[in-house]
Design a protein around this nucleic acid. Structure first.
Length: 117
DNA sequence: AATATGGCACAAA
DNA sequence: CTTTGTGCCATAT
């Protein structure tokens, strides 16, 4: 466990903790896992995302409130619709009051115990 | 092993 | 407020 790579396992668990109607940022997740400057790595991890259904990667956005790149910008429209269904409004590609929806009450302790399929 | 790219962030201009 | 440039971590080739 000497590698300074991100614990993907932890990332997934943390992201899973994000409740419906809430969102988070790559930076937020990066900090949550203990890698404050590995925001980009989070994206890379989401990319492989072996837990697509249980990991709401669509709830992860840029730190400035934009939806981010995602794999295929054309899918963004779908994400917007989905987020709208959860109570999150998007305006001009940016999340309205996105900081209000931000979920940062991550529980590292809970992550330690829980196991991933 | 080395280079390039990517679902990012932040400082500077 | 927008546009550059640089730094970071993980994958793909």
């Amino acid at each position: 466990m000497k590698k300074r790579i991100i614990d993907k396992n932890k990332v997934y668990k943390l992201l899973k903790q994000v409740p419906k109607g809430k969102i988070t940022t790559y930076k937020g997740l990066a900090e949550a896992v203990g890698h404050p400057n590995a925001a980009r790595a989070i994206g890379a991890i989401m990319r492989v995302n072996p837990y697509a259904p249980i990991v709401p990667c669509h709830r992860v956005v840029y730190s400035d409130g934009s939806l981010g790149g995602f794999s295929g910008m054309e899918r963004i429209g779908e994400k917007v619709k989905f987020l709208n269904s959860e109570g999150i409004l998007i305006n001009d590609g940016k999340i309205v009051h996105f900081k209000e929806h931000l979920f940062k009450n991550f529980s590292l302790r809970a992550t330690e115990k829980e196991t991933l399929p």
